[in-house]
Design a protein around this nucleic acid. Structure first.
Length: 592
DNA sequence: TTAGGGTTAG
């Protein structure tokens, strides 16, 4: 009878602890537990620790745990689970060592948690010790333990060790088979994964999907499709895998068709469609699909959706749509979200509203290297070079380590301000302070920096001393600078290099031709025109886009495709006249 | 109290 009463009290505390949402409430409950003398109880203690873990109070949990003279296995496990859920993997592993010294025994729940912590810590040596311990305790054939070991070894590329775990099991279920197949595929050996798949005594939807994804990874959509058509039960996830596969391989028609055929669509499916359009440069289609998703999708967009849509907005310069997405994102709970925020910063910067980009940046809950790089680059390209440089100082003072891309922004800020000396100091500091090896794009920035400052000879000798072969971008930067400073000699040299590197790019000829024009060397202009014609390639006409009534319209020079061409040109003519009457003289030098 | 499959940003 007395025992029954105790069980009821224990149960009451366990229920209270499970529903506990605040630290204050937790302390009240724990005080009552102590009053009832149950703080070391085998059933109550694990729940108490789990409640601390949910509230991210592992330090407090540890204090409770350390006071228990002989914690049972469930209590130890509650500590391990708490540490791994709160990403304190090192603590989990250290505590596991203490478990080995204590009287309690680990069970089949313990090992997967500790092995996963070793994976997170990238500590295979420790993982191997845990593996030995699991074998000693007789868990060699436990499917949960084996699955985590197979994962651990295959993530590290040690597929033979993974296979050994698999091979030494007495019995294997479909999850273990899937783990080893996944291991081979993750190690790049799809053929072995496929052989095991063909041998497997049982195949479920997860196993099929993993093998299909392996072929998608190899860009072998034909075999992926064959398997997809053969698999007995397709779920939404497998449909989505195929959708993303076609999108990643640039097959727009097939992913559109597949999306149309899907029996069910979740948010991942819509993200696959929208992201697929973005990946393939079809930004207007991405925005149209997003609108369709909102109307007929029956799913709420998530951060991924918003990022894809915002990146389409950036590429199109669709500022109004971008602003709408910003308001919408905040209304569905993504205010301050880093992923969405980074995309918003980029969108505002690319659409020319750098002030809004700064506001979003300052409102982020947490910032990563991409947040810093996006804002620094945004400020630099908007001519706010001093702000870009002070943002760089702020970045360092807030403990973020710059990477190669940060320096692209920094060097372009220096270029904008003509800070040649500072540019060189920053360039040197990459190696000296941050161990970043400058890549060709950094050399390109330096050529641009010297070229725009008019130091063409220095730019040329800088190119000649580069540790790698200069590419077309480098020579084009030099050629561009030659245009500004009308230096024909170096321009001709740069063009010669450009023709070798990109014989099919007529833009290079146009650039030199413009320099001849500037100098009135019309014979050379004509000669170049013939040389350009001989390449057989025409320069693609420049294209502009404008956001108009909720959609984005593109137009070329002298374009007459729009249904309202006549009134557009009438208004344009009116505007030009108005500008001229105010003394504006257009620069027609580059109009060919 | 346990396991195997999803996409982000420069």
């Amino acid at each position: 009878m007395l025992l029954n009463v105790q069980r009821i009290v224990e149960e009451k505390f366990i229920t209270l602890l499970r529903s506990c949402k605040t630290c204050e409430r937790l302390h009240q409950i724990q005080a009552q537990i102590v009053t009832n003398g149950l703080e070391h109880n085998d059933f109550v203690a694990p729940s108490s620790i789990a409640a601390c873990s949910r509230l991210k109070r592992m330090h407090h949990a540890r204090k409770l745990f350390d006071k228990i003279p002989q914690p049972n296995t469930a209590t130890w496990n509650a500590m391990f689970r708490g540490y791994s859920q709160n990403e304190h993997y090192r603590d989990a592993v250290l505590l596991f060592r203490e478990l080995n010294r204590a009287a309690a025994l680990p069970n089949c729940f313990t090992f997967p948690m500790i092995i996963k912590s070793c994976v997170k810590l990238k500590d295979v040596i420790e993982g191997e010790e845990v593996h030995c311990c699991a074998v000693k305790r007789g868990f060699k054939s436990n499917s949960f333990v084996a699955t985590s070991l197979i994962d651990m070894y295959s993530i590290k590329g040690l597929i033979e060790d993974a296979y050994k775990v698999f091979g030494e099991m007495r019995e294997r279920n479909v999850v273990v088979w899937t783990a080893i197949i996944n291991g081979y595929i993750a190690c790049g050996d799809v053929a072995s994964g496929r052989r095991l798949f063909d041998l497997a005594p049982e195949r479920d939807v997860v196993m099929w999907s993993i093998v299909i994804s392996g072929y998608i990874e190899l860009k072998n959509m034909v075999v992926a499709r064959e398997l997809f058509d053969k698999m007995p039960n397709r779920d939404t996830m497998s449909w989505n895998a195929m959708l993303n596969g076609y999108a990643a391989n640039g097959d727009v028609e097939l992913f559109e068709k597949l999306f149309g055929e899907m029996p069910e669509r979740n948010v991942y499916s819509w993200n696959g469609l929208i992201g697929g359009y973005v990946k393939n440069g079809l930004f207007s289609d991405a925005l149209e699909s997003f609108k369709r998703m909102l109307v007929e999708g029956h799913v709420v967009p998530n951060d991924f959706t918003l990022v894809a849509v915002l990146s389409a907005c950036s590429r199109l310069g669709a500022l109004d749509m971008g602003k709408w997405v910003h308001v919408y994102a905040e209304s569905i709970g993504y205010k301050g979200n880093m992923f969405v925020g980074n995309a918003l910063i980029d969108m505002y910067a690319k659409c020319g509203v750098i002030e809004n980009a700064v506001v979003v940046f300052n409102g982020l809950d947490r910032k990563d290297i991409i947040s810093w790089n996006t804002i620094i680059n945004g400020l630099a390209i908007h001519g706010h070079a001093p702000d870009a440089l002070s943002m760089f100082d702020r970045m360092k003072s807030e403990g973020e380590e710059p990477d190669g891309i940060t320096f692209v922004g920094i060097l372009s800020a220096c270029t904008h301000m003509g800070l040649v000396k500072d540019g060189f100091l920053y360039f040197k500091s990459m190696v000296d302070h941050y161990s970043i090896v400058p890549q060709i794009e950094h050399y390109g920035c330096m050529v641009d920096l010297l070229g725009r400052a008019g130091l063409l000879d220095k730019a040329l000798s800088f190119i000649r001393n580069m540790p790698m072969e200069p590419d077309a971008v480098i020579w084009a930067a030099l050629l561009g600078a030659c245009r500004i400073y009308k230096n024909v000699e170096i321009a001709e040299l740069a063009l010669q290099k450009l023709i070798e590197l990109e014989p099919k790019n007529p833009a290079n000829f146009v650039m030199l031709s413009n320099i001849y024009k500037d100098l009135g060397r019309w014979e050379d202009v004509a000669r170049l025109k013939i040389a350009m014609r001989d390449t057989g390639f025409r320069k693609l006409p420049g294209c502009s886009v404008i956001e108009c009534n909720d959609s984005v319209v593109e137009f070329y020079s002298l374009d007459e495709r729009h249904s309202e061409t006549e009134s557009i040109y009438r208004i344009l003519k009116g505007l030009t006249m108005l500008l001229r009457s105010h003394g504006y003289v257009p620069n027609l030098t580059d109009v060919t």
